[in-house]
Amino acid sequence: MTKVLEVNDLHVSFQTYGGTVKAVRGVTFDLRKGETLAIVGESGCGKSVTSQSIMRLIPEPPGSIDSGSILFKGKDLTKLKEKDLRKIRGADISMIFQDPMTALNPTLTIGDQIMEGIMQHESMSKSEAKKKALEMMNLVGIPSPESRLKQYPHQFSGGMRQRIVIAMALVCEPEVLIADEPTTALDVTIQAQILDLFRDIQEKTGVSIILITHDLGVVAQVADRVAVMYAGKVVEAGSRREIFYQPQHPYTKGLLRSIPRLDIEGEELIPIAGSPPDLFSPPQGCPFSARCEHAMEVCDRVYPYTSALSKEHHVDCWLQDSRALAAASMK
């Protein structure tokens, strides 16, 4: 399958009064045409920073992309000038932000905000832009779009605002859509509708989606592949089935144990003990070792190499080392 985006060994840091926060530390993944890649992990693991780095929305300073590459259509986005990035943002790569209310301008009508992207990137008249905006509102399921076009964000419900933000992101028919926690502020009924909308839009447009979330229930419904992040690193990646049914990293297993299951009666939720490491001074070895019940001496000292368990399934864990596997089989 064709790769539309490649992130290679990405490092992002922030300069603060307390020192340098190493927020993203060597993240590598790719996105293929027409698929949904979910990036999951606890708050503060670097998911949103990674997604904003792709769009080059990290404020510089205090943030900086220290090394690595982000390849889109053969161009390294980390090397482009701001004027060239503006041609890509919204047109080729779009983003849905976490809170639809803060993503919308309360002083402009919904129509003006949807048409702004069209007028910026495509040579259309205002009447043509309005027609396309109405088509997009129909696509995302906004009733009576003609009258709704003239209304303001405060006149829409939370679910409707999220649909408008999705319409704004898709109006220029991008190849890549980054959705940063798109269902966090919504109740479960509206959340299900938004997820159905993502599936419908992907079938109709073929857009590739990067879904940033901590909700594994959402991941199970829409993702094709999953990347699990911890302390600024991708510690495990694989197909949805491999991550949910054959997890190998202790952190991935801990995430799965901490969510409720309806298929097992009376099962207790087991939280992951401890706290994430301090990214002012990240650990030299595996960042999860302090919280891992299987940690060995080597885990604290050396970061594990990446073990390929299948074509899609990769994990960074010393438990996959042949010596650890041999010791486990002797018990």
Rank of each mutant, 00 (worst) to 15 (best):
L80R: 04
I65D: 00
D278H: 09
S43C: 12
S51F: 03
R32L: 08
S275M: 13
E122T: 07
F97M: 12
S53D: 08
I194C: 09
H314Q: 13
K3T: 14
K253S: 12
K132V: 13
G254M: 04
R241N: 11
K233V: 12
R241E: 15
S289T: 13
D300T: 10
F280S: 11
S310T: 12
V176H: 05
Q320G: 03
Q191D: 11
E6Q: 14
V188I: 14
R25N: 14
I114S: 01
P276V: 06
S64H: 10
K33R: 15
D30Q: 10
G68L: 05
G266W: 12
G41D: 13
R25H: 00
E122G: 04
S275R: 14
Q162D: 11
S64E: 15
Q284T: 15
T183W: 07
H314P: 00
M136W: 01
G254E: 06
K150G: 02
S329A: 15
G26C: 03
F29M: 06
K22D: 00
C292L: 07
L37R: 05
V171S: 02
E122A: 05
G158R: 07
I194M: 05
L71T: 14
G63A: 12
P271W: 01
E297S: 14
I243L: 10
S208P: 05
V226F: 11
Q113H: 07
T36D: 02
D92T: 07
F288T: 03
K130Q: 13
R161W: 05
G63I: 02
L10C: 09
I212A: 04
Q193D: 02
A237P: 00
P143C: 09
I264M: 10
G41Y: 11
P277H: 13
L256V: 01
D187T: 12
A220T: 03
I54E: 05
E242S: 11
F14G: 04
I118D: 03
D180A: 08
K33Y: 04
T306I: 15
F72S: 08
Q191N: 09
V49W: 01
P62L: 01
L216C: 05
S310E: 07
F97D: 09
P250A: 07
L309Y: 03
G19C: 10
G254F: 04
G46K: 06
M160Q: 15
K22M: 03
T184K: 02
D200M: 10
E135F: 03
G111P: 07
D300V: 00
Q98L: 12
A185S: 15
V207A: 10
H121A: 04
G44C: 09
G141F: 07
V235T: 04
C292D: 02
G232H: 01
G44V: 12
K204Q: 15
Q191A: 09
H314T: 12
S51K: 05
D321R: 02
Q221E: 15
F280M: 15
R225A: 11
S329E: 14
E242K: 01
A23E: 00
Y305D: 07
I65V: 13
S322L: 06
V12F: 02
I243P: 09
D84M: 00
I270Q: 12
A38K: 00
G217S: 09
E173W: 00
R323V: 15
K131Q: 11
S281H: 13
K130M: 05
